[in-house]
Design a protein around this nucleic acid. Structure first.
Lengths: 125, 125
DNA sequence: TCTCTGATTCGAAGAACGTCGAGACAACCC
DNA sequence: GGGTTGTCTCGACGTTCTTCGAATCAGAGA
């Protein structure tokens, strides 16, 4: 179970299983690419990238939507849509407490993406 | 010049300047997000993610297009289009030698992305 | 020079994406 | 209960993306 599951899911990734070696050392299998590409795509929008960083760097570990929305020149529904994208990708988690909804980063998948991009030493040059 | 330029470009990033702290420690400025988001977006397609890994993990540090194309069930022009996307994003570099074109990874921007995603310790759990 | 192979560019069709306004749902306060 | 505030869902519109076939460009070899 530790080598390589036939099917990969974001749940596996979030479970903390170090599934993927750096892409500079090992070619990414098609299955893994299909699972991880949506996460990169989710970060591929400037608004979502900023949202993600605001959530991940929140001092309390979480941040209210009411603090996210006014930081952009975008409508509420648009921000909500982007947050939904991040949620569905597994990058963040949402929790409603009373009137407000709080978002929290899920470090598992972020670590996966980071380790994938890791590069040791440039071979030449 | 070492703290933060008013305008950021991929050239700066590739120059090796450690421009960005991990997003879990510091909120990404809008400018930086606008520059880095396209790189994440480029990796946000399964085909491009696999292409990138095949290029980055090539034993000789580079790989021929003729080795990339047959690895996918896609037409030559489509692969070429994806490679162009990776090229324009600054993730890879291309060089023609005789009949064949070789692609090489540019580690600078990949390191930037990796450090951006770096997470220290999970705050809780 | 002519031809052949490898890679890119061009133009087009269909799908997916980002954005918005309107409406709906949830929780608080009077 | 009724009103208010905060957030999300639903359609809709215009833009961007992915993919392909056809055509073009670059270099090698006869």
């Amino acid at each position: 179970m530790s080598k390589q599951s036939p099917v990969l899911s974001l749940t596996d990734l979030n479970a903390g299983t170090p599934c993927c070696a750096p892409m500079s050392e090992q070619r990414i299998p098609a299955q893994t690419a299909a699972v991880l590409a949506p996460a990169f795509k989710a970060l591929g929008d400037p608004v979502r990238l900023q949202l993600m960083s605001m959530i991940a760097s929140a001092p309390a570990g979480e941040i209210c939507v009411c603090d996210l929305t006014p930081a952009f020149d975008l409508s509420g529904p648009t921000i909500s849509h982007h947050l939904k994208t991040l949620r569905e990708t597994g990058l963040v988690d949402a929790e409603r407490r009373g009137t407000w909804v709080y978002y929290r980063a899920r470090p598992g998948i972020m670590r996966q993406l980071a380790s994938l991009l890791q590069i040791g030493m440039p071979a030449s040059a």
